[in-house]
Structures are given as structure tokens and as C-alpha cells.
Simulated assay, not measured.
Amino acid sequence: MRVLVTRPEPDAEATLERLAALDIAAEIAPVMTRQTLSARLPPPEGFAALALTSTNAIRALEDLGALGALLAKPVFAVGDRTAHEARQAGFDTVTAADGTLESLTTAIALARLSGPVLYPAGSHLSGDLAHALAPHGLLVATVPVYEMVAETQFPQTVASALAGGQFGAVLLYSRRTAEIFCDLVKDILPPEERRKLPVLCLSENVAKPLLEAHFSRVLLADHPSEEAMMTLALAFAREQTGS
């Protein structure tokens, strides 16, 4: 069985390596590419903590030369992967939420911070952290520091493989990735073929655009994490191969 990995680099390569360790063949075709924006961040002294919902924010801060001035700030990361990358980048105090915006909101609210939160984010947001924390009396300064630019088409080899039913499944990690994937395959896969193609999703939120686009073999990870996605991929591969 060969699966298609759609997430952006460098995360796609990391997923490819993890799949290979599970003896699952895979191919990478990112549907988005990160571009760092010319952002002007406010002085870090005015903030009690940093909120991170993506490893891409850490990479963008490094591109902007803004990472060093922020390393002393406590970080609240949306999940374990982002928390790990934050520690690798040099942040000392990192709290990992449970992989969702709701859990991140709860973690920040329970910390009883003495000042506002700086939220370096992408230009496309799937949730509003500032709105979520407002009832807790916390101000959030959301600063777009990167943009995920959608691809306009798949490489011809990938498009042909999709049309020919050569992928046993597709891995999707974000709602926007799922939306772009649906747009890219609308002229490649008719509805009857979409119903046959298994799609492995990080969460229900990721799955919604796929269901609306007539994908019916939608499988969800038990938890919004890379570990849960690998568990799902392995269980699915074993089911397909009978091993």
C-alpha cells in the first residue's frame, strides 16, 4: 500500500520517515508552501507569554530574526509537536496543550497570566484565540508572521497516480489542507472515485471539507497528534494487507 502525504515541508519529510519506519510506502505532495511575511512584531517586554499553534510560526520568527528576543517568554503550545519544536528552538518554559484550540485556551486561562499574550500566527486561522480568551480577561495580540500559499495543481505524476487509483490512502493534517486537496482533485476524481479513496484525518474539523466533497471513507485519528496519525496509518495498512 502506498499513501500520499499532503502536509507542507519540512513536516512532510518527517512524516515520510515515520511511515517508512512502519514499513508503509509513501509519496510527498505538499498542497501548501510556507512564506514568511514582513511582519513587525511589538516589543516583547509588553507580553506575559507567547502562544503557538504551529511549528511554522517558530520557523517564521527565526526567519524574521525575532526569535532570540522572545526566548525568555513562557510558551503555550497547541500540542506536543509544537512544544517539542519550541524547546528545540531554545524556549525554556513550554506548556503543551492537548492538540486543540480549546485545550490551548484552557491552558492559558489556568495560568493566570499577569499580562497580554503575543500570538504569532499564520494569515489563515482556523480558530480565534483572541476571541476565546476574551471571556477570561486576557488580551491577545495576533500578529501574522507567515502565509501558507496553496498549490494550484498536483505534479503530473501524482495527479496520474490519484486518477489511476494508485494510492491506498491520503493523509490530511489540517482543515485548510483538506480544503485545498478537495479543490485540487475535483477535476481528477469524480464523486464515485472520491467515495472509494480512504482519507486519514487528524480530527473531525479536518474531515468536514472532505465529507462535503463526497469522500465517504473518512478515518479519524484518536487524538490530534502525529503519534495518533501514525497509529491510524499502521492499523489501516494492516487491515488492507491482512497482516
Rank of each mutant, 00 (worst) to 15 (best):
D187L: 11
A60W: 09
P8G: 02
S243C: 14
H84V: 04
G127E: 07
L41Q: 04
L41P: 06
A14G: 02
R34F: 03
D23A: 00
D222E: 02
D183Q: 15
L162G: 06
A237S: 15
D63M: 08
A60D: 05
E9Q: 12
E193L: 11
G122A: 03
A228D: 10
E27R: 03
P144F: 02
R195E: 14
H223S: 05
H131C: 08
G68V: 06
Q88N: 15
Y173T: 15
G242R: 13
H136D: 13
V3S: 01
R195N: 07
D92C: 15
Q166H: 15
P144D: 10
M230V: 00
H84M: 11
L110Q: 14
D80V: 09
R7G: 00
T231Q: 08
A77V: 01
L125Q: 13
A60Q: 06
L37E: 08
L37F: 05
G79P: 08
L172D: 08
R40P: 01
A141P: 08
S174V: 02
G79N: 02
G115A: 12
F181C: 13
L22S: 09
A39T: 07
R7L: 03
P120W: 00
E147T: 13
L138K: 05
R40T: 12
L118S: 11
F215I: 04
R2F: 01
L202G: 09
S203H: 04
E227P: 04
F154H: 05
D222V: 00
G115I: 05
A48T: 07
L200S: 05
V117C: 06
I28P: 01
E147V: 06
T53M: 02
H84P: 02
L129P: 09
L125C: 13
P43A: 07
M32F: 12
V143S: 10
L133M: 10
G168C: 10
L4E: 13
P198H: 07
T82E: 07
A20S: 13
P135M: 06
F181A: 10
A26F: 00
S54R: 06
L118E: 06
P74E: 11
G127M: 10
A237M: 12
H214T: 05
F47E: 04
A12T: 05
V140P: 09
A83P: 06
S243R: 13
A72L: 09
D187T: 14
A178L: 06
K73P: 10
E27K: 00
Q166L: 15
T33S: 11
V75E: 14
A161C: 14
A107F: 05
L171M: 15
A86S: 14
